[in-house]
Design a protein around this nucleic acid. Structure first.
Lengths: 337, 337
DNA sequence: TTGAAAGCGCTAACAG
DNA sequence: CTGTTAGCGCTTTCAA
């Protein structure tokens, strides 16, 4: 069915070995024969089989990306960054979504190993990040994404604590004192870091007896959950006064929250200031553009992919833990223009 | 480095052939030996090499998706639909972006063939859709996505002409008579079909001497281009009165257009009614929610993947050209609530 | 510089 | 039911 190296060899009147040489070490074969072989390849439209090459000892030009969900703009943008460098290097990108399920993460990793990808980029689930050791033991390069790694591995992350601090300082600076955090387990470590940042900023702001951050837990990072959080907040406002400054674990939550608040007649930013997280494009486009903590998603994907390729190719590769610094972007959800 | 079938065989005290059998035809091997082999596999954490299996005659459990850009919500959503069925069937998804470049499309296809994927889902570039024949000649199953196919192939598309008609009838029904279309070459056939639909709805609406649709060409399907289109329209409004009903080739353009118009003091929908296309989530979230033509993106991906898998597995697969009917969703960009 | 041959990890006959 | 064997398409020695 497919045309093989054998066919090319026959047509060019050489041996398989020679054809293989023009593929892999063109410099050792005589100009004239090389030309002949190349022509035969073109005539036959020969595409060498990667799987076969691998068995013959070459590395597969393919890398895997394991993430929560392509449909979420945050991950999609990371994927774009990855894809661009992978494509430039003539690699192919295989991606799998975990839906933040540790089970699926494990099986994704196995599938990728079975495919013999030469490297894996992992955005770990809340529970995950452990499984990578097994991956590495099998000789597959791996870098952690959106999660700080150890000294013996590469990783690309964003400093979520600083993000939480920046958001909080902004809110404090605007005079807000009753603060809340809307977040959930879905991207576990990230959210808890952001909350820690919030608490530490609050603590170091010097106030004594300041009330703790009111935490509204949500089951997922979605707009619907944000709306739900608004209802929760509103519902309990009889017992406890509504917070005036709210940080959300991501922009989608912020959008939902704002929608929920405004449909109950609460004005943003006049009654409540809301800060989102991620700074996806959407944050700039909604009715009241959202103040957010920008994460360099494309760059994260880009950087991680380059680290991975370096780990695959460079003999003297040294591990790096890259930590991007998030950036506060002020918009109308906290400050009236 | 990796543990092979040989290692498993040795540890279980059987031959390679037997191990292979428990992998591929477990029913032929004795319960007891099977248990022993399975145990050995578990002990060694054996993951069979897909590439090696392929050479041995099996199909690769991997399919390729070729699209314009993962970063665009329209494509991301299609990818999700694909991914869900692919994962369910224990396949792996390899994806490549073309950025709507025919060259890149061709090279993507070659890369996927080289990887020996067992099937390809192609969202063709404006120029593309031809190259699939070559793919099929190499024995790789393929289905066209977002593009109507011929009788000898499977395809999943949406009826863009009807979409254009629906949008236009809506605008006409609201009393708009000066109509415009903002669209571009980026997704060539789609946009021109939508425009055709617009013209045909206009023609069959019975009016005589009705002015033609004013077409504003844009170079890409982006928010920025939409804003640019607004400027163009506004700039020429001295010579030619502003249209009162505008259909955009996609939602991103509509968002940009509306932004451009409103920053020039033109009110949507009071002065101009705007209809978008695709109905991405974003369309519902912007300041003035956008009336749009909904395309079932997730379902498209889902359906296409199932057709592809059927083509791969079912001996008596028959080709199908699925054509979804788009649906008008009315929101505030055309009708004040 | 080129050809011949061995082998990569696995599957699929075919004997036994 | 299980072991043996011959490939799958390619790379990589090693001789010639």
């Amino acid at each position: 069915m497919a045309v093989t190296i054998e066919d090319v060899a026959r047509r060019a009147g050489v041996s398989r070995g020679t054809v293989s040489n023009v593929l892999n070490r063109p410099e050792v074969v005589l100009e004239a024969t090389r030309a002949r072989v190349l022509e035969a390849m073109r005539d036959l439209d020969f595409i060498p089989s990667q799987p076969a090459r691998m068995l013959g000892g070459l590395r597969n030009r393919s890398i895997g990306l394991v993430m929560h969900d392509v449909g979420h703009p945050f991950f999609a943008e990371i994927a774009r960054g990855v894809e661009d460098v992978v494509t430039r290097e003539d690699y192919v990108l295989t991606l799998t979504s975990t839906r933040d399920d540790a089970e699926r993460e494990r099986s994704s990793l196995r599938l990728l190993i079975a495919q013999q990808v030469s490297g894996i980029l992992l955005i770990p689930t809340a529970s995950g990040a452990e499984d990578l050791r097994q991956v590495r033991e099998r000789g597959v390069a791996a870098v952690l994404l959106d999660h700080e790694g150890g000294a013996n591995e590469c990783s690309v992350a964003v400093d979520d604590i600083r993000g939480g601090i920046a958001a909080t300082q902004h809110l404090l600076g605007l005079g807000h004192r009753r603060l809340a955090f809307v977040g959930g387990p879905t991207r576990g470590r990230q959210h808890s870091d952001r909350l820690s940042g919030m608490r530490s900023a609050l603590a170091s702001s010097g106030g004594r007896g300041r009330p703790a951050v009111h935490v509204v837990a949500v089951p997922a990072d979605t707009i619907a959950c944000g709306e739900e959080a608004a209802r929760t907040l509103l519902g309990s406002s009889a017992r406890r006064p509504l917070p005036t400054g709210i940080l959300c674990g991501n922009d989608l939550l912020a959008i939902g929250l704002m929608r929920g608040l405004s449909s109950a007649g609460v004005s943003v930013p006049d009654d409540v200031a809301v800060v989102g997280y991620d700074d996806i494009e959407l944050a700039t486009l909604v009715g009241t553009p959202i103040t957010s903590i920008r994460q360099p998603m494309y760059e994260m994907g880009h950087t991680a992919a380059e680290l991975l390729l370096s780990e695959i190719h460079d003999r003297n590769h040294t591990h790096r833990n890259v930590r991007f610094v998030p950036e506060l972007v002020v918009r109308e959800s906290t400050v009236r223009p």
